[in-house]
Write a protein that binds this DNA or RNA. Structure first.
Length: 410
DNA sequence: TCTGGGGTCCTAGGACCC
DNA sequence: TCTGGGGTCCTAGGACCC
């Protein structure tokens, strides 16, 4: 394992850069990519916007306070997924071992490619040149003996960086690297480690392992290894990746709501979104989750219910969600609603026995066909047909280009 | 017009079985 | 007449990632 060569490639300000490429008027200007709702946040800021202090996750109004000239662009997911897919295909020219980590990041295992291409550095330059030439985009690349260090390396120089951590440089690098720079140490863990006086990876490595274990359980061992820059996890290409475990959608409402009929309309829409995606993936689920965030933002209620059988039809999901909602005593107006399906397995392809069930299945199938062909919500349940419920399909950075390949069969 | 949306993994407690 | 354990499944909540 010690002679692995792993590359991590991270597209710079991906959504914003794609927009600047397709619209020259945006080039050189502060651009923030946002969602369609007025309660949206900045999903990506161009480097010009970052210079003003605009950051991912900021509320729209907050970003405008940092940078009054900020140009806000509503994200176009289709454009990003299209570009992203083509970039990942390009990476396949250098190794079949490409792990898509998010819509704009991937790991490549290059150990088997060096004989053909000379060196990992050489591959990095070639890939960068092609991405720039074909898409007008830059990326930051890290090369190291494992994924943890490759990701750390790619973060070191942005934009358009290339950073290599060689095996004999690992110890020195870890000595000066702040713990929060590691992927896996978030805000909370950073705070807890700092309370122990640990600020750098070097200090983390030297900290007594038994205390880490006592305080963090099995995570303690992981932390100890991370501090040394050790990570044995393999690069897993999509076709070998774990099947997806949950399918869900949630939405922050344009205004806080109270009325049950309004709540139901959103829940029906969410159930339809979840059901449609589950059916597209060919899975059904046995557990249904309802998520509610109250107007105060801090109170989040999650309630789940496991059914007697697996379901994938939107109306069945909706009914289950209804039952869960009935068991909750609502205490505040609602800001966000979410529906999720888990306990997934391959859908049973057999048609149900009863006439009524069969009819519903066929109707569902017909509805899916139209939606697959013409886009989401061209055909849907009658109660959804208001302007508010046109349902913009959302893509997240957790998106995977090929979707689900295989699903656990239990 | 305060703070999105998609996931994964881990923990901890309770029910239930043998 | 004291409360053993191992296993699985379920639920709720939180940390973390992009």
């Amino acid at each position: 394992m010690s002679d692995r060569v792993i590359m991590h490639c991270d597209m710079n300000a991906f959504f914003a850069s794609v927009e600047q490429q397709s619209n020259p008027e945006l080039r050189g200007k502060p651009v923030g990519i946002i969602g369609a709702s007025h309660r949206t946040i900045i999903t990506t800021a161009s480097y010009e916007a970052r210079a003003y202090g605009v950051r991912t996750g900021m509320a729209k109004w907050e970003a405008l306070q940092c940078c009054p000239d900020l140009i806000l662009v509503v994200g176009n997911n289709r454009k990003y997924t299209h570009t992203s897919t083509r970039i990942f295909e390009m990476m396949q020219d250098y190794t079949p071992l490409v792990e898509v980590f998010s819509i704009d990041e991937a790991f490549l295992d290059l150990a088997g490619s060096l004989a053909l291409f000379g060196s990992a550095e050489n591959i990095a330059y070639r890939l960068k040149a092609r991405i720039r030439h074909q898409f007008g985009l830059t990326c930051s690349i890290g090369i190291a003996p494992n994924k943890l260090l490759a990701k750390l390396a790619s973060e070191m120089k942005k934009p358009d960086g290339l950073t290599i951590i060689r095996p004999d440089e690992v110890v020195e690098t870890m000595e000066r690297t702040p713990i929060e720079d590691l992927c896996g140490i978030g805000r909370r863990m950073n705070r807890q480690l700092r309370q122990l006086g640990i600020e750098t990876c070097g200090q983390l490595e030297r900290y007594p392992l038994d205390i880490l274990r006592r305080k963090f359980g099995i995570i303690g061992d992981k932390l100890h290894r991370m501090g040394q820059g050790i990570d044995e996890s393999p690069v897993i290409p999509d076709e070998r990746s774990e099947p997806v475990k949950t399918v869900g959608h949630s939405m922050t409402l344009s205004h806080d709501i109270n009325r049950r009929d309004e709540i139901n309309r959103y829940l029906l829409q969410l159930s339809e979104m979840v059901g449609r995606r589950a059916r597209r993936y060919g899975v059904s689920g046995k557990t249904v989750h309802l998520t509610i965030r109250y107007a105060d933002f801090d109170t989040n209620i999650g309630k789940q219910s496991t059914l007697l059988s697996h379901i994938d039809r939107s109306d069945e999901i909706y009914q289950a969600v209804q039952r869960i909602l009935n068991s909750i005593n609502l205490e505040q107006p609602i800001r966000l609603l979410g529906v999720r399906l888990s306990n997934l397995r391959h859908r049973d392809s057999q048609l149900p026995l009863f006439q009524e069930e069969r009819r519903k299945d066929l109707a569902t199938h017909a509805m899916d066909e139209v939606n697959n062909q013409y886009g989401d919500f061209k055909v849907t349940f009658g109660s959804l047909l208001t302007d508010e419920h046109k349902g913009s399909s959302v893509i997240s950075p957790a998106w995977r280009p090929q979707g689900i390949r295989n699903v656990d069969v239990k």
